[in-house]
Write a protein that binds this DNA or RNA. Structure first.
Lengths: 339, 339
DNA sequence: TACTTTTACTATACCGGTTTAGTAAATCGG
DNA sequence: CCGATTTACTAAACCGGTATAGTAAAAGTA
C-alpha cells in the first residue's frame, strides 16, 4: 500500500472521512466512545500521518511563519531566529528560516517562495532594496515585521536597537579612558543600522568637541576592511581605539592586528557592537555592546502573531536599548595583554 | 479582491485555468504567441503568485527537503546545513532546518512534522533513540540520509567522519610533542561520534604502550565538564594535554582554564575536534581537527537527491577523513602563551 | 402517540492547482 | 473537396484534507 490517507483510516475504522477528520481535530463530542477507540486503533495500526498540505489548502493557513535573515553568519541573527522559533513553538506554529545573504535578489526570491508556500507571516531583516515589494505586502495587509533595520520612508511594524545611543555611550566610554583618536569600522552604509552607528559615533565626537575626520570612519566591504585598517594605521596619528561595527568586522580587526603584530589592549583599545560568545574568554576580555536579541525576537514574534490573528497592533516602531559590557579591551592601553 | 488565484488570471486573460497552468509550467508549444502575452500581462497586472500547496498536493512532491540537526549551536552543524542548502538551491529544492536540541522527543516531533508537510526527504543528525521510526521510514522507502552519527544496527545511507583515525592521529601528535599524560573530554557517550573519538584515544594509547586510565577520559554533560576538569587537575599527576571532543567542550575547557588561571600552551596543551572560526586568531593559535563539512553536506545531499529521484544508490556508509591543523596550542609547553 | 430535540454520524462541496481526455477550428495531403 | 492531422485550446477529475448541510435513529417532551 502506498501513502496512507484519511480514506484508508475511515475504511478500516468503518466510518466516514468526516468522522476521522473530527477525531483528528479533537472534536469528540459527537462520536461514541467505541467509535473514537476504533479510529484511534486504525490510525495507530496504519501509522497514519495527516497531510498538512491538504489541510492548509482548505484552511487557508499553514501555521508556519518565515524568517528572512540578512546574513546568517551574524551571531545576532542566530540568536534572534532562535528566540522567534521558541516563541512560535509555544503557539504550535512552525518556523522556516532563510538566509538572504545580504542580496536583494535573494531576499525577493525568498519572500516570494515563502508566500507561495502560504506562510502566515514574515519577519524580515530587510536589505532595504525591495521597497515596492515591502509596500505591496503591507497594502495587502499581509502580516510582516521588520527586524534590526528600518526601511526608509516605510511605516511598518519594526523592532530595532537604539544604535545611536549605544554607539555614543561606547565612544564616550573610550574617551573616559583617555582615548582621543577613536575610529569606527562598519560595513558599507547601505542599511540603517550601520548609518545609525556611524551617526552615534559622530554625535559623541561633536558633543565632546572632538573633530570628525573622514579617515577615522571606515565603511567598507568585509573583504576590504583590513586594507582600510592598514591605511588608517599608517597615518601619522593612528587611532588608539576602534569600535568594530559588528562581529564580522571584529574578526577582521583581529586578523589585521595579528598580521601586523599589534596587540589589542596594548597597541589599541577595542570594542565590538554585537555579542561575541567567547568575548570573556580571551585575553584581554573584549568589551561588547550586547543587543537584547532574545527580547527583540520575542517582541517581533508577538507583533507578527497579533497581525496573523487580525488584532490591531499599537506601536509601529519598537526600539530596544543595548547594554555596554565593559571588559579590559577598551580601557587604557597597557602592556599586559594579548589576544 | 482577496487572494489572486489562477482562475482570476484565466478570466482576465480570457482563457481557461488549464492554459494558465500550461503557461506557468513553461509548456508554450501549444499556445499562440498572443495568448501567451495575454496571460503574461494578466499575471503581471494582478501580481499573481501561484499557490505551492495546491500544486504540491496534486504532484505529490513539495520540492522541499528537511534537515534535522542534533544541536544547531555546533559550528559543524551550521556548516553542513549551509552546504546542503547550497546544493539543493542549485536544484530548485527548498530546505527546512530544524533543531532537535539533542532531544529524541523533539527529533520525533520534527520528523513527523516535516513528513506531514510532505517534504521529499530528510537528512538527519540522529539522536539514535528513535530506532523504530528510522526503521519504518526506511522500510517505506522514504528518502533519508544520516549525517555525522551512525545508528547502531541500522544499515542506512550515512555520511560520517573517520573519528577514530582522526583522534588517534591527534593523540599521537601530542605524544610526538612529548606529552604522556593526555586526557580527552567529550559529552556523554550516547552517540557514535563520541564513542568513536574515545575509541581512537584508547587505541592511540594502547598502540604506544601507554596505560589507559579512567580519570583521563571525561564524558559528561556540558554543564558538568568544568567540574570534571577540576577533579582531573586535582590529581597528583594532572594531564599535560587535553583533547576537547567538540567546540562546545572546547569553550568549557577555556572557561575552566580562565577560572583556574591556567594558561593554554603553558600549563597544558590543547586541541579541539571541530572547526573553530577564530582558532587562528587567539594566542596561542589553537590546534583543530577540521571535518570536511562542506563535502560531507554535498555528498549527503547527493545521496538524498538520488533517492528522491528513485535512483539506486551504491554505497551505504561514507566515511570522510578529517584534517589535523596543527597550531601552537598543542605543542610542547612553554611560557609564551595566553589565550 | 406524535412531534421536537439530540445524538452520532454521512455526503458533498470546496481549497487551488495539475493532468488527462476531449474538441472545435485550421491546415494538409491526395 | 473530403477525410486526416495538427493546432490551440477547454472541461472535468483529482490530490487529501475541512466544513457545512443533511439525515436516520434514539431520546425527550407534551
Amino acid at each position: 500500500m502506498g501513502k496512507i490517507t484519511m480514506a484508508d483510516v475511515a475504511k478500516k475504522a468503518g466510518v466516514s472521512k468526516s468522522t476521522v477528520s473530527q477525531f483528528l481535530n479533537k472534536r469528540y463530542e459527537y462520536m461514541r466512545e467505541d467509535t473514537r477507540k476504533r479510529i484511534e486503533a486504525a490510525i495507530e495500526e496504519l501509522h497514519y500521518q495527516p497531510n498538512y498540505l491538504a489541510r492548509s489548502l482548505k484552511q487557508k493557513r499553514t501555521s508556519t511563519v518565515g524568517i528572512i535573515v540578512a546574513n546568517i553568519m551574524h551571531r545576532f541573527s542566530t540568536e534572534v531566529s532562535r528566540s522567534i522559533e521558541d516563541f512560535f513553538n509555544k503557539h504550535d506554529i512552525h518556523t522556516i528560516v532563510c538566509n538572504a545573504d545580504n542580496d536583494p535578489e535573494k531576499e525577493k526570491k525568498y519572500i516570494e517562495m515563502l508566500r507561495a508556500k502560504q506562510v502566515d507571516g514574515l519577519i524580515i531583516f530587510p536589505t532595504g532594496e525591495n521597497f515596492d515589494l515591502y509596500k505591496r505586502m503591507m497594502k495587502e495587509g499581509y502580516p510582516i515585521v521588520f527586524m534590526d533595520r528600518k526601511v526608509p520612508d516605510l511605516i511598518a511594524p519594526s523592532v530595532v536597537s537604539n544604535n545611536i545611543e549605544a554607539t555614543k555611550t561606547t565612544i564616550e566610554h573610550f574617551m573616559e579612558n583617555g582615548h582621543k583618536q577613536i575610529a569606527i569600522a562598519t560595513e558599507p552604509l547601505t542599511i540603517s543600522t550601520r548609518v545609525e552607528r556611524q551617526e552615534g559615533y559622530k554625535k559623541a565626537l561633536q558633543d565632546n568637541g572632538i573633530e570628525i575626520r573622514q579617515p577615522f570612519m571606515i565603511s567598507a566591504n568585509i573583504k576590504k576592511i583590513k586594507k582600510e585598517l592598514e591605511e588608517l594605521f599608517a597615518l601619522d596619528d593612528p587611532p588608539s581605539a576602534i569600535l568594530a561595527g559588528n562581529d564580522l568586522v571584529f574578526l577582521e580587526v583581529l586578523e589585521f592586528a595579528k598580521e601586523h603584530k599589534l596587540k589589542v589592549g596594548k597597541d589599541f583599545a577595542l570594542a565590538v557592537f554585537d555579542n561575541i560568545p567567547f568575548a570573556h574568554l580571551v585575553h584581554p576580555p573584549v568589551t561588547t555592546i550586547a543587543q537584547p536579541s532574545y527580547h527583540m525576537g520575542e517582541k517581533a514574534s508577538e507583533l507578527l502573531l497579533k497581525q496573523i490573528n487580525k488584532e490591531e497592533i499599537e506601536n509601529h516602531e519598537l526600539t530596544f536599548p543595548c547594554e555596554l559590557i565593559i571588559r579590559d579591551s577598551s580601557k587604557e592601553l597597557n602592556n599586559n595583554t594579548v589576544i
